[in-house]
Write a protein that binds this DNA or RNA. Structure first.
Lengths: 409, 409
DNA sequence: CGGTCTTATCTCAAGGCGTGAGTTAAGTAG
DNA sequence: CTACTTAACTCACGCCTTGAGATAAGACCG
């Protein structure tokens, strides 16, 4: 790669556009004055750049606010119609496609259920996604130009060395090096200039909580995602939001008990084998707990939480200890200021077990990082994977300053 | 913090100076031509910037090399005398201070042994460091201006919110919020314009291996450091070297066995309680193994490795399994392309156990990231903590492009 | 109602910077 | 000695940010 780092004087303008856009996006309407103070740019430059952005339709004036006796400040904001975004959630049981405006208000959605093992037929999955895209794009709603598409998937996402875009490795659903990006581009006939991002669903949900949920404002945070499986999303130095260096997080397959319970990944003693919803229910069954026939995991877990059975209490206490210790690992490794427990099972378990989890974390983590970290529940519910996925092209939009630069190179 | 991101056109020049310096530092002598190709800058800019750097004495011409018939390329390099660096290793048994020239050639050193528990008296430790600094600075060697000082310490380093510089929390040696930076600045009477960095010793050693050792060239790597205790240094996106976002790493206190062995940190089942040298020897003792009276840990570990006792083999096999599983955690969490096993105990154990460790890692990690990661031994030995520490001011030098900007603000 | 004050925003000339084309420097091949 | 090739430098141009000053827009006071 011959090129690196910024170069020409033009990048300055791009960078400043991006800075202003990002600030305006997250900190609501601001006056030029405040922008100058926050960004350190001179007021002259603010005028120039905002004039450009206004001309591009990326900004609009939004009333004004008095100033002790002087000319009132004109507030600026990004109009919701400045663009639209699509987020896709390739979940364990369904595929959801949602269309958002730039303020992440949902404009349309399309959901396809997916049978167990339905992931095996990749072509079918891709077709479902493409249908969903077509459906939301065809929806009769007012919206700006499409800024891009984000897709959240299970497993690990890597870049194809042959330049074929994102490739997905998802051991648990049987995907081995699936070139999802190129498949989707051709199946959905996407223009090559449409930004398309593929990322791990847990990371994606993490970004949603970081930007709009419980992680908002934190610099270093970890989003722990517990569903049937377990994942985590690590955000370090999230200052200015999208500057965030995102770490992956197959946290669920971290060893908590050497030679312990068999995990569906093949190894033994993984965290997921203890605190994943599937594993918790399995452990309850082993302890003699019942599961209403035909009940899905979600209601079965609710039943466990509601049970008065001492065996259930024991299972839950152990779950809290494992979860706390698992979180302690993250605390020790990353020293985050905030930990957000999310995912459907995480929210269910957390509502009841949070105090016990906090206690276990304090017991297993080192004192100093433990004192710094707070543990909270996620605020966005389970459906935020699409929001997080849509966040990917949104981040690109904010980072490039809405520049009309095709991703050809 | 009101200011963020780049702003003025002057930062461009600073950035380009930095880019050129960094490239020249790591990729040896290069011609202006090659610099242009690598950095994407126009040859005109290369001429301008290099002329400036030459005038500042930060660059020198170093011969020339023919070019198929045309004018030969003049090679440029950073002269070793462009500056000097000091690295300090606050170790478990001694304090080492070393002076390097900019190419990391050692010019002088000073070592003070430290008795067990000697860390408790912080003032004394600081005095020893200051004496060491004075000693190496007084050494009669040719050297350039001092570019800065780096200090590697055990434990976690944080920034004092009151602006008092780095504060060290090291549970294992009894340091609780020690404001090492300000103590050292006043005791050693450092000018406030002398860059002084304090960082975790494991991170520091990690950076040394990344820049000059087994990690060289890797983008994402983890340096696992095993001594009496266990730490890790995580480097993500190390492209262009110092762009590296360094994650901390109290990896040693990650839980491997819930409710397992008691660790010196107070928790149970930590990795360190199984694979730290102290723990390994303790486990050998429990298994009936002997330890020559008076032998230090290093030779005791060597004796264990040399032992033909089946109990010893058992202890080692278990150690390899724990270590492998611990590495698997890192593999799953960070998906690194390379893992470097370092630290004195890590090197000793690794020399013998590396195949078993690799096997255990493969068994415990997910297939895809495991296939990507290679596990290697460190190349720099145990004394590289000072090199790594010196790397901190060096990194600053390369990042600022050697700008004469005092760190006042 | 007009004058004065205060504050926000715009305008403009100046100074920096990177670029690309053209020029000069420094060799080789015949 | 000449033609050719390649490296490095020079210069006019366009773009960027800045700081100072001009202008806009309201509040306060008499």
């Amino acid at each position: 790669m011959p090129e690196r780092h910024r170069r020409t004087v033009r990048d300055l303008r791009r960078g400043n556009r991006a800075t202003l856009l990002r600030r305006l996006y997250f900190e609501g309407p601001l006056s030029r004055q405040e922008l100058a103070a926050h960004t350190g740019l001179s007021s002259a430059s603010i005028s120039n750049v905002t004039a450009e952005l206004l001309a591009d339709g990326l900004l609009e004036e939004a009333g004004s606010v008095g100033s002790d006796g002087g000319r009132p400040r004109t507030l600026l904001r990004i109009p919701p119609g400045a663009g639209s975004l699509i987020g896709v959630d390739v979940g364990e049981t369904r595929i959801r496609v949602e269309l958002f405006d730039i303020s992440m208000t949902e404009l349309a959605r399309s959901v396809h259920p997916l049978k167990d093992g339905g992931h095996g037929d990749v072509t079918h999955v891709v077709r479902l996604i493409a249908d969903g895209l077509a459906a939301v794009c065809g929806a009769d709603v007012q919206r700006g130009p499409l800024l891009g598409i984000g897709v959240g998937v299970p497993g690990i996402v890597a870049e194809d060395p042959a330049g074929d875009g994102a490739v997905v490795h998802a051991q648990t659903v049987g995907w081995d090096a699936v070139p999802l990006e190129s498949l989707l581009r051709s199946t959905a006939q996407l223009s090559s200039s449409t930004p398309l991002f593929v990322s791990n669903g847990a990371k994606t949900l993490g970004q949603a909580e970081m930007w709009f949920g419980a992680g908002r404002g934190a610099r270093d945070a970890v989003i722990a995602l517990i569903g049937s499986g377990v994942g985590a999303s690590v955000i370090t130095d999230g200052s200015a939001y999208g500057g965030a260096a995102q770490g992956a997080g197959e946290w669920g397959h971290t060893t908590m008990q050497l030679r312990g319970r068999r995990c569906r990944c093949g190894a033994r003693g993984c965290l997921e084998a203890y605190v994943g919803a599937e594993a918790v229910l399995e452990r309850w069954r082993e302890a003699g707990g019942g599961r209403a026939p035909g009940a899905d995991e979600e209601s079965a877990l609710a039943a466990l939480l509601a049970s008065e059975d001492p065996a259930a209490a024991e299972v839950l206490a152990e779950t809290a200890e494992y979860l706390g210790a698992g979180i302690a690992d993250l605390v020790n490794l990353f020293n985050p200021e905030r930990i957000v427990l999310a995912g459907w099972a995480g929210l269910q378990l957390g509502a009841r077990l949070l105090p016990a989890v906090r206690e276990a974390t304090a017991a297993y983590a080192l004192r100093y990082p433990a004192a710094r970290a707070t543990i909270e529940l996620g605020r966005l519910g389970t459906d935020a994977v699409t929001v997080g996925a849509a966040t990917l092209p949104l981040n690109r939009f904010l980072t490039t300053g809405g520049a009309p630069q095709g991703p050809g190179g």
